[in-house]
């Protein structure tokens, strides 16, 4: 099977926000085929690896198939969170589009958008 390298932004959209001293990153696919790719590729371990420069704690993973979505909690990703944080992105507002930058291998010719 021929594959190609694409960015997650080509098959999914995302939103993130703060959750205490962590952030949540929700990501949803445009198509059922895209959702299967997300489910397969986006393990908690891979997302933790992607955010290694941001999330210092564990990563939790949840599925919401009705929205073709996955939800990740990035623990300890805000430098303390709330008004404690010294970070520019103290609320994790940009973590969603940060996940969409991830590159993955997908089969050529699958309906993704």
């Amino acid at each position: 099977m021929k594959t190609e390298k694409i960015k997650l932004s080509e098959i999914a959209y995302a939103r993130s926000g703060d959750k205490g001293d962590g952030s949540n990153v929700g990501i949803a696919a445009y198509t059922n085929e895209g959702y299967e790719i997300l489910r397969r590729e986006l393990t908690a371990a891979r997302v933790k690896q992607h955010f290694a420069g941001i999330a210092l704690g564990d990563v939790d993973r949840y599925e919401a198939p009705n929205m073709l979505a996955l939800n990740f909690i990035l623990h300890d990703s805000l430098g303390g969170g709330g008004s404690e944080s010294l970070k520019t992105d103290a609320q994790g507002k940009t973590h969603g589009i940060g996940l969409l930058r991830m590159e993955i291998e997908v089969p050529v010719g699958v309906k993704l958008k």
Partner: peptide, 27 residues
């Protein structure tokens, strides 16, 4: 859906004062 994902924890258990909502049931 983007807003439903905002500040989400466990999608099956969105706990409010009056209810625990299951976001995986939303159509």
């Amino acid at each position: 859906a983007s807003q439903l994902l905002y500040e989400m924890g466990d999608p099956k258990r969105y706990i409010g004062p009056d209810i625990v909502a299951d976001f995986t049931s939303i159509q």
